[in-house]
Design a protein around this nucleic acid. Structure first.
Lengths: 339, 339
DNA sequence: CCCGTCCATGGAAGCCCTTCCATGGTTTTT
DNA sequence: AAAAACCATGGAAGGGCTTCCATGGACGGG
């Protein structure tokens, strides 16, 4: 039988209220009493029962994270940053990883209705109007990370600018026939990255060729930001034969990896035959020398968590939006270092 | 104010016990009553308060996972399998990711003493005798995954055999000068993989050359199973000049990636100049054509979770040990397909 | 020396469920 | 027809904490 606050109180010859005050570091306590209670706590090896505390405090000290865990390593790196901050705030992280987009709502429902978490980090997914309404209604603390909705707090990356600069970098490297491999166009990052790509092409007075824009073919429940999509997209571009592009902007590093494979299988070399730039800067990119636009994952995760904890503390309801910038990381695949 | 079981009971004109029975699908309930209560639950949009349920049931419906999240993608893939099963069992997953080995105990303490989780999955880490004792004492449900202790349940991979077969495969490909890049030798997988490597070398009547065995140099808190360690290890082997090995067995895929980079930087090619085989079969290995020993991550995760749920259900205390086998995945880097 | 303050403290009530026991009604048995 | 067995149900107790309110002692001021 676990030791409870009553055992401690009895053995210390004080009331349970006093023990509770000691545990919670209340100021209204005589130092001698505090030491005595602390001694007993130590002797009995007492640990407060977190669940009971949660019930009484009406706080769970845990935050939930709804994240499409399985579609890419970008998320893994975000998760890293999140976990770090969660520990820092002495909270627990409950992971709701979505491997099938339809689960998003199930998880939202759980988090909102069951009151198991104090707040929610909602990563890279779309949120339905119905749940936005529910969230506003309950004034439930939530922060969108790498996602956006105008009524909710969000940390997002400047995708358009990132795509613009990625494409511009390829242009500066001297390429004229530039293609883009994108995710499915129903996702916001896909749309904005495409905008940036197109803008760069047009501002440089290059011709926008529809054949040079391919969307990730993928399984119905995925988002196209994966290896296969990159591979298949590249295949499609290679089928253009002589008209094939000289350089590729892939909307994610993992797509770039797939594309690289297709390029290799075609007996071509990077960057000599086809240059490529990715987006994300996931860990493996460094190893394969992929030029890419780095998303500041740690920073994004940190900002999101800080904001979330702030909201949990004080339920203010102004909408907070933070946009972070990407950084061009030049490696081998863009051909920049060839000159 | 959230709606409670009392509100439901009152509105439905029944007692709280009855409502509770409906929620929990008790058999002892007249169907007409059940329907009536269900109706009210729906009307009021009632959701049981999970924390209160946990307290009353003395179950949290959540399981914890202590995992060295940040040292490799192998863990990410295990986590994938774990999460899938956790959802299946309608539980929650609390993630305790260890980025600094010293945190292991902190997390163990939390999980054991605070009673926030019903059980624990302990992945790829070492557990101190003190905690083994505590666990046995409390009969706390825990399963070690990719780790081992003779008094606790564990799912482990046959590392020795895997390493043996990996090395043998290189031998079969015709290489004679074979090196191994390993993690730090204080970790069990490192030790057993080394055993397998050595056994293969000796059984093939090749000479075991000490210079061909390098341990991952790495940060003090890491385990050497990472990219840098692979990179540095390979550099060391390349410094051997003419005496350099013809083929490498890397104890993890991510080390192989690092090694590959070092090979590339030295102007050498794989597998023509130096062949390499990894261990793990992480997702990216397929893309870079890395020959490797696949660890059945999904299966391991599934087995561990199944066992854990079984233990949570019925506290039997026999020790369960399951050893799974690796699978040779032949791709490009071993040179097998060159012939 | 008495009264008003202020502190440290005890403990009841409350958080929201589950579960056990008691109850009254119904059905079966003899 | 009475006794026995059975059911569905209500609600108190209990799970382990926090917090508010009441209390009594110490202390300063008049």
């Amino acid at each position: 039988m676990p030791v409870t606050i009553y055992d401690v109180a009895q053995k210390a010859g004080v009331g349970i209220g006093t023990v509770s005050r000691v545990i919670n570091n209340s100021s209204q306590i005589k130092d001698s009493t505090k030491q005595k209670v602390l001694g007993v706590i130590n002797d009995l090896n007492y640990q407060p029962h977190i669940v009971a505390q949660s019930l009484a405090r009406r706080k769970t000290s845990s935050i939930g994270c709804i994240i499409p865990f399985f579609t890419g390593y970008f998320f893994v790196e975000l998760l890293r940053g999140i976990q770090r901050k969660v520990s820092f705030y002495k909270h627990e992280l409950i992971l709701y990883s979505v491997d099938d987009v339809s689960k998003t709502e199930t998880f939202l429902k759980k988090a909102l209705d069951e009151r198991r978490v104090d707040g929610l980090l909602f990563v890279s997914l779309d949120i339905s109007p119905e749940y936005v309404r529910k969230i506003k209604e309950k004034n439930f603390p939530i922060v969108l990370l790498d996602s956006y909705h105008d009524e909710l707090d969000s940390i997002k990356v400047n995708n358009e600018d990132g795509a613009f600069r990625a494409t511009t970098h390829l242009i500066n490297c001297g390429y004229k026939k530039i293609a883009m491999i994108n995710g499915i166009m129903s996702s916001l990052p896909s749309i904005t990255r495409f905008e940036g790509f197109k803008k760069a092409i047009i501002e440089a007075d290059l011709e926008y060729d529809e054949r040079y824009f391919v969307q990730g073919d993928c399984a119905p429940d995925a988002d196209g930001f994966n290896k296969e999509a990159g591979y298949l997209g590249m295949k499609k571009l290679l089928e253009l034969g002589k008209a094939r592009p000289e350089a590729i902007f892939a909307a994610s590093d993992i797509q770039a990896v797939g594309a690289l494979r297709a390029i290799g299988e075609a007996g071509l070399k990077t960057p000599e035959d086809i240059a490529i730039i990715g987006f994300d800067d996931i860990e493996l990119s460094e190893h394969i020398g992929l030029t890419t636009m780095r998303q500041p994952t740690m920073r994004m995760a940190g900002l999101a968590m800080t904001r979330l904890m702030e909201k949990i503390g004080s339920k203010n309801d102004d909408v907070f939006v933070k946009r972070v910038e990407t950084e061009l990381i030049i490696r081998d695949t863009c051909g920049f270092n060839l000159k």
